[in-house]
Amino acid sequence: MSILVFGATGQVARELARHEGVISVGREQADLSDPGACAALIRETAPEAVINAAAYTAVDKAETEEELATVINGAAPGAMAAACVQMGIPFVHISTDYVFAGTGEAPWQTDDPVAPPNAYGRSKRAGEEAVIAAGGTYAILRTSWVVSAHGNNFVKTMLRLGAARAQVSVVADQIGAPTPARDIAEACLKMARQLVLEPKKSGIYHFQGAPYVSWAGFAAEIFAISNLACEVVEIPTTDYPTPAVRPLNSRLDCTTLETVFGIPQPDWRRGLQDILKELAE
């Protein structure tokens, strides 16, 4: 099965590229700031399914570049979805927990009201709306705290700081769960293949690692597995101000994904061990 993947250097895209039948395209072949070019590429390539693993992900920078972020995260996925409708093929799009307000403590359900707290979240919600409006066979996969052995992410940052410092301050009141990019990639592929045969499975789904943890707790686990004698100092979000508001509650209810597609939540601790092993090698 041929699957066209937008994104070549991102964490999930690099994991998708490991799989047979995947055609990965980067910015050189398809610039997401030109939605029309993305749609044209789908028509020219004529794949059996499309996965969008590319996005504008600079959360803080989006506060001053919301228009560009909205084109890349909103208009481009909409154009891709519309092209997939014309081709009669499924479209899988990766979204984020940032579409929610990030308040409370209950895990977010797929049909909970959205209220993005920042520009990045608003741009991603625009993408969701555009994909749904296209009216084809689609799956929107909201995920959180993506980590892998590639690119810039929390694991690699903590490894660098943990090796250089005796202690590091990490926020402890933001609760969610890391999600290994490899697991996200495999979930997207399973969804795309099932949607070809069962388009009625179209909809919005949640996928993140388990169990829930704070960023501080995640950092402590990274240090423990890596045998780094670095102390984690727990601090509130108010002590670590950022241009973009961060959600305190990133918990996602993932039961629907397992019920419909048979994809269970992965244990992020096992995924972390795999990431650390790959980095060591």
Rank of each mutant, 00 (worst) to 15 (best):
S2D: 15
I3P: 07
V5S: 07
A8F: 03
T9Q: 11
A13L: 02
G21P: 06
I23C: 11
A39Y: 06
L41K: 15
R43M: 13
R43N: 07
A49Y: 00
V50N: 01
I51V: 14
Y56T: 12
T57P: 12
A62S: 15
E65G: 11
E67H: 15
A69Y: 08
V71Q: 11
I72L: 15
I72G: 04
A75C: 08
A79T: 06
A81W: 09
M87H: 09
I89A: 02
I94S: 01
S95E: 01
S95D: 03
G102W: 00
T103Q: 10
A106K: 13
P107Q: 04
Q109M: 14
Q109Y: 03
D112W: 04
P116H: 03
N118T: 00
S123G: 02
R125K: 14
A130T: 04
T137F: 05
S144N: 12
V155C: 03
V155A: 02
M158E: 01
R160P: 01
R160Y: 06
A163S: 14
A164K: 15
Q167C: 12
Q167D: 11
A172I: 06
Q174I: 07
D183V: 11
Q194M: 15
V196S: 14
L197W: 08
E198W: 10
P199L: 09
G203K: 10
A216Q: 06
A219Q: 08
A220Q: 14
A220T: 10
E221S: 11
F223A: 02
F223Q: 00
V233W: 05
V233K: 14
E234C: 09
P236C: 07
T238G: 04
Y240W: 11
Y240M: 14
P241T: 08
R246S: 06
P247I: 03
L252T: 03
T255Q: 15
L257Y: 04
E258Q: 15
G262R: 03
R270W: 04
L276K: 09
L276E: 05
